[in-house]
Amino acid sequence: MATVRFTSALQRFLAAPPTEVTAATVGEALAAVFEVRPALRGYVLDDQGALRRHVAIYIAGEAVRDRVKLSDPIGPNDEIYVFQALTGG
């Protein structure tokens, strides 16, 4: 199974533990997590379901390419990292 891991910056607002999922794409993997934790969805995706501008997802060390439809494929044992692109002061 693939594992979705969330930035610790999210833990300040809500629980986001690592979650094992069976999925073929990034979008499916996230959907599987949001099924269990619906409140997490709005922190990662915008109202149209695209990745938020200042959130990044890496799979096996590479940034996902399709930030709108989240169609990038994932392997059965991939680690999917969801984290924030740091800004601000």
């Binding site: 999210l10 607002f13 709005g42 915008d46 938020r52 200042h54 959130v55 924030q84 800004t87």
Partner: peptide, 21 residues
């Protein structure tokens, strides 16, 4: 929240804050 979007919270009667949709 710069990274994680606009959020809405409510507190009633001086209790805990709860996040709303």
């Amino acid at each position: 929240l710069g990274h994680f979007g606009a959020k809405l919270w409510r507190r009633e009667g001086g209790g805990e804050w709860r996040e709303l949709t």
